[in-house]
Amino acid sequence: MGKTKESLYIRIIKHIYGIHGYFDEYKKQEVNRIGNNAFLILFLLFGLEIISTSFSALIFESSNVLIVLMWSNLLIFLIILLYLAFSVSKLKLDQIETYDNKDYSHQIKKLRKKCIMLAFNFFIIERIVFFLIDLLTNDNHLTILQLIISPKENIVWGITSIIFSITLYFVQKSKIKK
């Protein structure tokens, strides 16, 4: 009963929930339960958001409502991510099981590569998001090129990305079990 090839759907689920190793029936059951709860939270929050936005649009300026809407969407996204991370961590579904010392050092090497890639991805995504926000709230009337190559922003987000990936490395390392 060896390890069979996983479908793309399973790989996406595992990636989103941060699950490692076999995606067996216990993990599947727990992921379904967590997913349903996340959907209910999402359903409630988006419902509230739609109602409040509709009423706000009648009273306040549309551009202000749009900015509030963008931030509240980001907040809802973070709430859901936090819930998923907390639930998965509580059930220890994100543990990486290793079988011997060789496997352990292999997993550590894999983790290092993953963290470097994540730091890079984090930097790119944050720069895109904050570039768009700066573009919308461009009070200093800077050009697009000035916004992109802003040294202060790049250094700040570069350092943040490095701190983020180092923290993630130690958190993930603690989840590798011999």
Binding site: M1, G2, G21, D24, E25, Y26, L93, E97, Y99
Partner: peptide, 16 residues
């Protein structure tokens, strides 16, 4: 770990 590997489940699931 041997039994878990043989059955195709995680050690955590077998332990539970």
């Amino acid at each position: 770990k041997d039994l878990a590997l043989e059955v195709g489940i995680s050690r955590q699931t077998l332990s539970l």
